[in-house]
Write a protein that binds this DNA or RNA. Sequence first.
RNA 1: GCCAUUGUAGCUUAGCGGUAAAGCACGUCAUUGGUAAUGACGAGACCAUGGGUUCGAUCCCCAUCAAUGGCUCCA
Length: 585
Amino acid sequence: MEQTQIQQNRHSLAHLLAAAILKIWPDALPTLGPAIDTGFYYDFDFKTPISDKDFEKIENKMREIAKKWKGFEKKEISIDEARKLFAGNPYKLELIEEINKKKESITLYTSGTGDTESTDLCRGGHTDDMARTVLAMGWKLERVAGAYWRGDEKNKMLTRVYGLAFESKEKLEEYIKLREEAEKRDHKKIGKEMGLFTVSDLVGKGLPMYLPKGNIIRTELEKMIRYEKEKLGYSFVTIPHIARKELYIRSGHMGKYDAMMPTMTDENGDEFVMKAMNCPHHFEIYNAEQHTYKDLPLRLAENTTVYRNEKSGELSGLLRVKNLTQDDTHHFIRQDQIQSEIKMIIGLMQKVYSMFGFNDYKVKISIRDPKNKEKYFGSDEVWEKAEGILIDEVKKWGVKYSVEEGEAAFYGPKIDIGVKDSIGRDWQLTTIQLDFNQPENFEMDYIGDDGKKHRVVVLHVAIFGSFERFMGIIIEHYAGNFPVWLAPVQVKVIPVRTSHNEYAKKVYETLRANDIRAEFDDDDENLGKKVHATKNDRTPYWIVLGDKEVEANTVTLESRDSGQLGQMTVNELVAKLTTEIKDRK
RNA sequence: GCCAUUGUAGCUUAGCGGUAAAGCACGUCAUUGGUAAUGACGAGACCAUGGGUUCGAUCCCCAUCAAUGGCUCCA
């Protein structure tokens, strides 16, 4: 395998880590230790638990060993030798048997010092000078974590020791800085500081609740997406949050996601489940009326909450939750409308994302596994055409994309779209999913121009994905400095002295009457303190009102992003803010 | 779910085997102050919950709950 220098160095450090650990804990069983994007890790089966308090000891041991480390001596051994050598380590034995099955040769690498601790089963790819590598690189042990053997939760939990490793100490610092920056932007921290959302033990984990200020942001997002969709001819509907179990038996979800959907039984013995997806309800809305080819595309949209039983350890703030509100749409279209519909959706998405400054896209198109066509639902012809259209439309869009064979769901191909945020992190947002299967399950038809019934094609689309996740992402993207249209408080009204309260109140009321989210800071504090507090709470604008302003019947405007903006009349301020809000700048 | 770490006033944190301290925020009074924080006083915590060890626990042990980071980037 082709490996870069840095990967080789990282991997070598993993060997060094293993050697150090075995010196200190001779009964630990080493398993795997690859290089990763930010350094390396090594998984061990420890007899005694270790923690990050042991890091200093381990790092020192690593440096000590590195000095004596002669290089990586390669030795090819037979399967029997290997079995004998690793007789006490079932993990290595499992690997050896696998290598043997693949008919590859088994290679050992040693430090050249003859130490057994520094001998490891390895495919190769190392630094030739461990001592220099250890000195030159920026590295440190990062944390211990649990990891299942081979990532399978049915297997034994091993102890993983993570290390950071970069080309130089400066690069390591840079990475640590970036991570600190990300921590400062943590949506859970900012959410608390700004009073956006809360999680209560009594309500339950993974079930965030929006506080008044957070709810303003969420409502603005909902209003915006609804407005944009309605302009394109989407029809909004409302569905209940539970349904009879039979609905999900029909859709095929029941049987596959039972753990997600616990049932409740009413007095007649009917079983109901909480919805974990909206499609079946929307399908029944489609079927409530007869449709003709002239009605299509029909786009049913709804901002509605689904409930999913995520693994409790995976819940986190707004990003992984049990209740997620999707900006869900189901497009009911004819086969000949796939192209125009995809094009429209991509256009909508671009328009929406550009409001947030998300312009760096990463697109993944998931298609069938061409070697396993029988696994998929629907005819060859329809699949090929659909996949071709998805790829074509993304090409026309002109963004980076990849085509993933075998990643499609059995019922249809899909497009996943991710964006880069303001500090360069990738977030997967929109999914556009073609579905040839559900129209069969629900017998969803339209009358064609030939007067006969035809099956529709369904597209599942959510632009934001979920409002919870999207909010979490934009909190971090903006670091809480929301643009005016989203800011919970758009302008704060600050009188210089309490004697200016009357004038300030009048200004405040005028702003509110003009649909501007103003807040009146009538605290009996000195001006310096009030302005200081306002600067810290991420309010985009504030106005100061004192003798000068009362006399001239003006306000003095200052902005979070561009400083002092001078005096203007209240009407001028209203006009300025209204325009910015309307333009969603 | 599993592994590691963590859990002290609204927030951020200090502390110790003998029932807790500070800053911010909050309240009252005085100050009427023009852009990095006016002063004084005050209220506020059974130190996550439940057990145990101990003469005695917030501090030690166990369990539970919650938070944070990990859990197929592969010899």
